[in-house]
Each structure stands twice: as structure tokens, then as C-alpha cells.
Design a protein around this nucleic acid. Structure first.
Length: 763
DNA sequence: TACTAAGCTCTTTTT
DNA sequence: GAGCTTAGTA
């Protein structure tokens, strides 16, 4: 392959990038620091392979997100033209699903298998726990599911798990000795339902390659060049699959950054990148150390952070970019004030410094933190968009429709059936469903089989005809799907199932938004059918496979223009923004208290902080609050230890609160105070119930304040929802919360810290 | 069977 | 704060 003509596009690259792109043969590890042009290297490398005449059919490129693969495909297309469509490029899950779809019978599945998302998996685990009469306080579905998932990611089957004394000792110690049995039952049931969960897509691929040498041989020879993006995030199973696939060609190129490994909770094993040298002794390593993204200050500060970690590969990130501004530290009293201060800064960035809203991102550790920023941004009319959170595909109405579709394709899909057998309500209640489940268990058949033969059982009474109607309806859908394309089928199902009608009748704002979501999904299906870059296959089967592996981040959206972006740090990986706010930098929140146990996990939290700050190009803000409402409680917070890991000379800690002194902890959080919970539902003192059951007076009524404490004065007679009637002795305010001493008739004097007035003011 | 009010339990990140 | 479960009622 040497001495070929020189591809002109290589001139866009710097020396080390060029080296990484041009080392086409043999194992190559590219250690790519943040902002060093990693995607560029991957795309140019693939483009160069094709430039040299390698058939795109022989190139396999694996990414972690659909977004990354889509972006890469588009960039390659710009370099080499439409042939890029034929590349084997996609997420691990989607590429393997495609292979499994083709080879399903070899490992005992039918090709129309459907894919469980983690909600389905947890729901199935939950019903198994229930059926085994286990205490669901001990056996929490999510805990069990995570344990099953991590076993699978380490290629441990249910049978091996059952046989392992080590694992059973662990489970015994945790008081969950039955975990192995749940795992076994779960596996059996998935198999019986002709369903694969996310992990199955990986382990079944491994199984297929391991047990069928002919298949392995076929793909080993097909994929002459294998490229893996974000290699630091691969788990053991993915690692083993890659190892098998490249065993013949040994043309493997992995690109990654150990400093950005933030997915160990999902099974990612950082050792995979740390041990690359052992697996491929003849390997070559290229380090991309020049950062093209951020200012010198940001690069230096991020270096300070990551150098606190012990486990890392040796590299030094540098930049020739300008020095840039200092990093601003924002200190706020509460989460609400944090929102206000951050949004004020955004206002000044966009209105005084000429940034556009879409160039600004707010990054947080947990999705729940977004609320304070949403409220503050809304208040000063800055448009924003939240990424992640409740994904479009996790919305109830979308999951309902997808459940119909899954059942249409695969009638054995138990979770789908249970979800929609009585939605919209068609008079098939819990007792009837339990009877069906009981029979299915007794005869060791699927729920669907029982529906088919329902007339043989004399136990359903008037529900029999309803079951039969449901059965007929799904059969009808199944037959429709055989002759029509995905769009026509989905539209037909949405109408005939009654979902559309049901939602259309609901005129509440939520109902309307649900209806709109269904319409949006229909639009999505239409696009899928019309999009010619997709597979030729436009059937419902193909659509479902696509949609099961799609996440919100992949959804096309023009509405993001001119909007500030809000997302978790995890979701921000791979992105960059001129201005970044990393918020909620408090001990126990970031680093998360879950991870404060072990050193290794703390290192991962630190890598997460590193990822967050390295998203920023020019402006970086770090913010924290000294008290915070979480789960309805006002909590005291210490600033995050990570803040002290940056050299003070890079920080500007004075600008944000000059002249302001914050009150001491004790003056805010005294000892005899009741911290009022601001839950939407709370227990009402029965004696005063009637006063709250009456319809709310109009907002103009001076005696009623819904969520504003401004009228609360000394001497007010109030009815509180938990403590009953009382008289306000004194009120003090700190601008965000009110502190009121109230003498209650039953319960004595109490000091309440109030966020909202969950009380009526009587006089 | 369907709907609602009240109660309980979290405490993370997601392909 | 929110999702989920349970108990009670229509």
C-alpha cells in the first residue's frame, strides 16, 4: 500500500495527526487528548483507506453513539463521496444487531427478535422477583438488573453465575442469595419471548463468533480494517468481540483518551486501553497532544485537575491558543440563586460580549439539577434546550405505541403485551391478566399462546370476548405489517389500536402534548421510510430495530438554534462550546456521594470534571451553592474538593460576589428549626382538611397566596397544611427563603424555613 | 374495573 | 420532586 499517490486532503493535518492517519497496517493506538482532533483523525483515516481503494464494505468502524457515527459518515462522505454509505459504521449495538438479525437462527433466535430497553428489563426482573415471593425491599429490581447486566458484560452466563461460589458468597453477604435464580429465570424468559436486551446484543454476538467458526471466519475476512472510537469506554465483552474480529487481519485502530473514561458504571473497563500494548505487542502508538479547542488557561487548569489522578497514561496536552480569561468561580447561597447568577452571566455574555445563546452550555452532574436553571433562564427570557433527561423514546405515549409495534412484529414479546393489553382501557383488568399469566405458567407457554386458545379456558367470563378481540386486533396488525411499509403500518396501528383517539379526546395540556408526540413519532417513521441513506429495508421490523437503539441525543432537531444548551456532563462528551458553565460543584453532588467510597471511582469523578472543563473553548465558569433543595429538603453543602485542585492563579473568585458576605451555616440552619418540605403532596391535618379541599380562590384574593411569601407578616393568622392553625410571631427573609416563627394551636411554636407558602393566610 | 388520594422511597451518570 | 404502590371509593 506504500508508494501510492498522496491524498490531497492530508494537508489539513498536523504531524502527529498525519502519522495516526497514515499508519494503516497493524495495531495502532491513538491517544487523543481533549480537543486534539480525534474525530478528524478517524474520518481521514477511513477516507484514506477508501482513497487507496479499500472497499467500504471491508471497513468496520464502531462508535458509542449514533450521533458520532452519523457525523463521521457525513464527514467521510464530504471527502470521498457517496460511497461512504456502504461503510460498516455504527454503534456497537446497532452493528451487532444487524449481524445478529442475519444470523439469529444459528444461536436459536428468530430473526424478528425485538429489543428490550432497560425499562423493559427492569420491569421483567421486577415481575420475576414478585413471582418468586422475594422481598422487593432487598431485591430491588434496578440493583438486581445492574448486577445481571454487569455479569453479562463480563461474559458470565446465568448458568456460570449460578455455579460460581465467589458470586454466590457475594450475594449471600449482601443478603440477596437468590440473585442467580432471578438471573436464570430472566434469561430464560427473554429467550422465550424472542427478545434481546442491550447486553444480549453484545454477548450473543460474542457467542455467535465463538461457537460458529464459519461465521467468525466470514466476518474476520470481511472486516479487513477495524476502527474503534472511544476505546476507553469499551467493556469486557466488546473488547473480546473486537479481539476475535481482528485476530486475522490485526488491522485494528483504537482511538481514545484514558482521561475521559467516564462509563465504568456501564461496564467500561479502562484497562482495555491501558493494556493495549500487552494485547498487540507489535503495536504502534501515536499521541495527539496539541489542543486546538481551548485557551491556555483552560488547558492548564484541566491539566491540574487530571494530574491528581494516579492511573493514567503519559501524555502532555498543550496549546498554541491565546492565554484567555481566568476561570470564573461563582458562589451562590442556594440552587435557586445559582440559577439566577448563572443566567445573569449568560445574559452578559450574549448581550455584552456578542456570544450567541447556542454557544453557551450549562453542564451538571445529575439531570435533576436542570430545574433551577430552567426557571432562572425563563425568567429573563433566554431560550434554552435540555438534552437528555426524559428522552423522547421513554415517554409513556411513545413507549405505548412502540409496545404495539413490538407486539405486531414479535407476539412473544411479553413486556410489550403486558403494557398494552389494557391500554387504551378495554376492560381487561388485573385479575384477567393474572389468570392469563397463571395459565401461561402452568402450561409453560407464552401469554400470546394463551390468548390464542383463550376459548378453551372457562375462567374468563365476560372478559373472554375482550381477550379475543385484542388477539384478533394484533393478528390484523401482524398481517398488515407483512404487506405495508413501516409508515403505513404505524399509522394504521396508531389509529386502530385506539391510542390516537384516546389521546385526541384528552384536552388537558399534557394530553395535547402526548398527541403531538405521537404525531412527531409518525413523522419520524415517515422520514425513516423516505431516507435513502438508510438500509433498503423499510419494514416495521427494520424501523423497530433502529428505534430501539436510538436515544434522544440522536433525534434531529432544528429547534436548537439560538438556544442555551443544558445537559449532563456525560451527555456533553464529544461536544465543544465557546462558553461552558459547570454547575453544582459541591461535595456529595459532584463528586457524587455514591462514589466517595473508593479511590478508583473518585478518579472517575475527577475524569468527569476534566471532561466538563475541557468542553470549553474560551469562557469557563464554575459554580456552586452553599445550600441546596434536594428531594424537597434544604441541605447544607460544602464546595467540591475539585475546586481546590486548580491552581488559584487561573481562577477569578472575586468577581461574582464582591461586597457580599454570606451568612454562616448556623445563622441559616439553626438547631430548633423545622425544614419545611415542599412536596407537591403532603399529609394534611384532618382537622383542617376542608379548608384545603375548597376550590382555590382566584389569585386576586388577598387572603390566598399560592407560592409567594411576600404577604406573610408578623401577626398573620395562618392555616398550615401540616401543623394546622397558628399565628406568625416573626418573619425574616434572605431573599430566597423566608424563615417564619409560628405559634401553632396544636404543636407549639415552630420555626419554618419556607420555600413556598403551603398555607392560607387568614387575616 | 377504573379512578383518586395518600403514602413511601429515593437519593448518578446511559448505549 | 416524582414515580410508584396501596387503599378506598364510584
Amino acid at each position: 500500500m506504500e508508494n501510492l499517490e498522496y491524498a490531497p486532503f492530508l494537508n489539513d493535518l498536523d504531524t502527529s495527526q498525519k502519522e495516526a492517519v497514515m499508519s494503516l497496517e497493524g495495531p495502532l493506538m491513538v491517544l487523543a487528548g481533549a480537543g486534539s482532533g480525534k474525530t478528524r483523525v478517524l474520518t481521514y483515516r477511513i477516507a484514506l483507506l477508501m482513497f487507496y481503494g479499500v472497499d467500504p464494505f471491508n471497513i468496520l468502524a464502531l462508535t458509542f453513539t449514533n450521533k458520532a457515527s452519523k457525523e463521521m459518515r457525513e464527514r467521510i462522505e464530504r471527502l470521498v463521496g457517496p460511497e461512504a454509505k456502504n461503510l460498516w459504521m455504527g454503534t456497537f449495538h446497532s452493528v451487532f444487531a444487524k449481524i445478529l438479525r442475519a444470523e439469529a437462527p444459528k444461536i436459536g433466535y428468530q430473526p424478528n427478535f425485538t429489543i428490550f430497553d432497560s425499562d423493559d428489563s427492569k420491569s421483567m426482573v421486577k415481575s420475576i422477583i414478585k413471582e418468586m415471593n422475594l422481598d422487593d425491599k432487598l431485591y430491588k429490581p434496578s440493583v438486581i438488573y445492574n448486577r445481571i447486566s454487569s455479569a453479562k458484560n463480563n461474559l458470565i452466563t446465568a448458568e456460570e453465575y449460578l455455579a460460581s461460589s465467589e458470586l454466590s458468597i457475594q450475594d449471600e453477604a449482601n443478603g440477596r442469595p437468590k440473585t442467580a435464580d432471578i438471573f436464570l429465570e430472566y434469561s430464560k424468559r427473554c429467550y422465550k419471548s424472542n427478545v434481546m436486551d442491550f447486553d444480549d446484543l453484545l454477548i450473543n454476538t460474542y457467542k455467535l463468533l465463538k461457537e460458529h467458526p464459519d461465521v467468525l471466519n466470514k466476518y474476520q475476512h470481511q472486516f479487513r480494517y477495524v476502527l474503534v472510537d472511544e476505546y476507553q469506554d469499551t467493556n469486557h465483552c466488546q473488547y473480546m468481540i473486537i479481539k476475535k474480529l481482528v485476530a486475522v487481519s490485526r488491522n485494528i485502530c483504537v482511538v481514545g483518551d484514558d482521561s475521559q473514561s467516564i462509563y465504568s458504571f456501564r461496564g467500561a473497563n479502562i484497562q482495555n486501553i491501558l493494556n493495549f500494548a500487552n494485547d498487540y505487542p507489535e503495536y504502534k502508538v501515536v499521541k495527539l497532544e496539541q489542543n486546538y479547542r481551548s485557551t491556555k488557561t483552560i488547558v492548564a487548569a484541566s491539566g491540574d485537575i487530571i494530574n491528581h489522578n494516579k492511573q493514567k497514561l503519559d501524555k502532555t496536552i498543550w496549546t498554541s491558543n491565546p492565554e484567555g480569561d481566568k476561570i470564573n468561580v461563582i458562589k451562590a447561597l442556594t440552587d435557586k440563586e445559582e440559577g439566577t447568577l448563572v443566567s445573569q452571566q449568560i445574559y452578559s455574555l450574549t448581550n455584552l460580549q456578542g456570544l450567541r445563546n447556542e454557544e453557551v452550555a450549562i453542564l451538571y452532574r445529575t439531570n435533576a439539577q436542570s430545574r433551577a436553571f430552567e426557571e432562572a433562564l425563563r425568567k429573563i427570557n433566554i431560550p434554552y434546550k435540555i438534552y437528555g433527561g426524559l428522552s423522547f423514546y421513554q415517554r409513556k405515549e411513545i413507549k405505548d405505541l412502540i409496545a404495539y409495534l413490538r407486539l405486531t412484529v414479535n407476539q412473544k414479546d411479553e413486556e410489550a403485551l403486558k403494557r398494552i393489553i389494557n391500554y387504551p382501557a378495554r376492560g381487561i383488568g388485573d385479575t384477567t391478566i393474572q389468570k392469563v399469566a397463571y395459565i401461561a405458567n402452568q402450561y409453560k407457554v407464552t401469554l400470546w399462546d394463551v390468548l390464542e386458545k383463550a376459548h378453551h379456558f372457562d375462567v374468563f367470563g365476560s372478559a373472554l370476548s375482550k381477550l379475543q378481540n385484542f388477539y384478533m386486533m394484533i393478528c390484523n396488525f401482524r398481517d398488515t405489517a407483512k404487506t405495508k411499509d413501516a409508515y403505513d403500518t404505524v399509522e394504521y396501528v396508531a389509529k386502530q389500536s385506539g391510542i390516537l383517539k384516546h389521546l385526541h379526546e384528552d384536552k388537558t395540556p399534557e394530553g395535547i402534548s402526548r398527541y403531538d408526540n405521537i404525531m412527531e413519532m409518525l413523522n419520524g417513521v415517515k422520514e425513516f421510510c423516505e431516507d435513502d441513506t438508510n438500509e433498503v429495508d423499510k419494514t416495521l421490523d427494520a424501523y423497530l430495530q433502529d428505534v430501539a437503539l436510538l436515544t434522544d441525543a440522536d433525534k434531529e432537531d432544528e429547534s436548537e438554534h439560538e438556544k442555551v444548551k443544558l445537559m449532563t456532563i456525560h451527555a456533553s462528551k464529544g461536544l465543544e462550546f465557546p462558553a461552558v458553565f459547570v454547575v453544582g460543584l459541591e461535595e456529595n453532588l459532584f463528586p457524587s456521594f455514591m462514589t466517595l467510597q473508593s479511590r478508583a471511582e473518585l478518579e472517575e469523578e475527577r475524569r468527569l470534571f476534566y471532561v466538563a472543563v475541557t468542553r470549553a473553548e474560551k469562557h469557563l465558569f464554575l459554580s456552586y451553592a452553599t445550600s441546596r433543595f434536594r428531594y424537597g429538603n434544604l441541605l447544607y453543602c460544602e464546595p467540591s474538593r475539585f475546586l481546590t485542585e486548580i491552581e488559584p492563579k487561573y481562577l477569578n473568585t472575586t468577581a461574582m460576589f464582591k461586597g457580599k458576605t454570606l451568612p454562616s451555616k448556623d445563622s441559616v440552619f439553626g438547631k430548633n428549626e423545622v425544614q419545611e418540605k415542599t412536596t407537591s403532596r403532603f399529609s394534611i391535618n384532618p382537622a383542617y382538611r376542608s379548608q384545603f379541599d375548597t376550590p382555590k380562590p382566584p389569585a386576586s384574593d388577598p387572603n390566598f397566596i399560592a407560592d409567594d411569601l411576600s404577604n406573610l407578616k408578623e401577626g398573620c393568622r395562618v392555616v398550615h397544611q401540616r401543623f394546622g392553625k397558628g399565628i406568625v410571631e416573626s418573619v425574616s427573609r434572605d431573599g430566597i427563603n423566608s424563615k417564619a416563627v409560628i405559634n401553632f394551636e396544636e404543636g407549639g411554636s415552630k420555626t419554618l424555613i419556607l420555600k413556598f407558602a403551603k398555607m392560607k393566610i387568614l387575616a
